[in-house]
Design a protein around this nucleic acid. Structure first.
Lengths: 248, 248
DNA sequence: AAAGATTTGTCCGTATGTATG
DNA sequence: ACATACATACGGACAAATCTT
């Protein structure tokens, strides 16, 4: 199948790392679902065109991350993980979206600050650049596992003190309702992907796979006034976004 | 700033590569927008805690990819690239979505085959597993630049010979219309992200940033019957998907 | 116009890490 | 465990191009 291309020796990525990535992808693609284990090291070494020692380094790294488990005499077993599906649509709510998939969801306030709006944030929220905006940095978890890292921007005066409300209620929806926002809707969502920085990778506890989905989203109240602009990083190997486009 | 974390010497990724990634992200984040250039090599070397030569290796790689341009005596200039925005909604059409952003769009048929449906494909298209399905591998371009790499699955008998129609009309919409599908709508879109394999990276001409958005999408005809199931890889540094959820 | 400062380009050598057999 | 080859990273010195004073 994906014997594809050989190992790139000038990519700045060690061969064992490239092999680890390819094994990881093959697992994601379900290539080893039949047996639930990875092929023997000698076989992998041959198919990748490298020495067995190199394959062993790759497997050791994946085992360290908990993706594989080595059993002497049996082989290398795959530890199953499935991706959560996060629905994005007109009504997008973190905990509601994961109902039935995760037992318990939580949101932690990492940092709160207030300052002048950047050009981009002001444009999104419909404010004049430099107007005061509150910035909330949050980490969302499902069953204790970090799922997303977000920065939320809200209008300064109107939502003053929302950080403590968020910490208390552990819900953005409930925190907003305490400021008179009974309901809000998702106006637009832009999604792209990139590699996480080491700091982001650390906060999301990403192991060997530092790929994140990055969304820029705008929520508005029932009258269509912008309420909250957020930039969110999702751990790509833990979640898939489902974009809902319901019938008219 | 993002002085953030130091270089990880045990990650299997060369220091110059890690630095290249961080410079690349800093550019994306707009950190150097004020000057339009990257800080001097000596300054970068100090802030990253590495030798100037290591920084030079990083910059050389980014320059190779066309992200930077070095000018002796002046500095290292940033070559601006903008991300195309690809709207995903009830009516999602490749070329229509990029109108006004790209001058010319094209789609190339890389490979066509017919065979039994896998469990996942059969479920998506509402067929019995093992039923015959046509598989089209395509590459989409905007202004000659590869944007997405897709595998499309369609029911076997009904769309027999669609590959040549696609090659001729250079449009999935037009190819489908020749089989009596006057209109179709996007039923669901699931999106996640991962690192591209070397083969995928090659086909999409991804430079140093092998991150891709992966979508699984289902299109249905006006009566709601599944027509086409596609798995698409978008070059993450060239495109952002936008989901609009306008008022009902 | 000239001098000096800044910044990238190139050369040398050496030590360490990675991968193979 | 050993030997070998290559990529990576560091350190220093100087040249070449550009900008500032």
């Amino acid at each position: 199948m994906d014997s594809g291309f050989s190992i790139d020796r000038r990519s700045g990525v060690a061969a064992w790392k490239q092999i680890a990535d390819r094994i990881s992808r093959a697992i994601d693609a379900g290539d080893y679902d039949a047996t639930g284990m990875v092929p023997p090291e000698t076989q992998l070494a041959e198919s990748f065109g490298v020495n067995r020692h190199t394959v062993r380094s790759a497997i050791a790294a994946l085992a360290e991350d908990g993706l594989l488990r080595r059993v002497q005499g049996r082989g290398t077993l795959i530890e199953k993980r499935e991706r959560l599906v996060y629905p994005v649509g007109r009504r997008t709510r973190f905990s509601e979206g994961l109902v039935g998939q995760a037992g318990e969801t939580d949101i932690r306030l990492l940092h709160e600050s207030e300052g002048p709006a950047s050009v981009a944030v002001a444009a999104a929220l419909g404010l004049t650049p430099g107007a005061s905006v509150i910035q909330l940095n949050t980490l969302s978890l499902a069953d204790g596992i970090p799922i997303s890292l977000a920065v939320h921007y809200l209008e300064g005066g109107r939502f003053s003190g929302i950080g403590s409300r968020l910490s208390a209620s552990r819900s953005i929806t409930r925190a907003l309702s305490e400021f008179g926002v009974e309901d809000y809707v998702r106006v637009s969502t832009e999604v792209t992907a990139r590699l996480a920085s080491p700091a982001e990778s650390e906060q999301l506890s990403l192991g060997g796979n530092p790929v994140v989905l990055e969304t820029a989203a705008l929520n508005a109240d029932s009258e269509g006034r912008p309420v909250q602009y957020s930039r969110t990083l999702f751990a790509a190997d833990r979640i898939a976004l489902r974009l809902d486009t319901p019938g008219k």
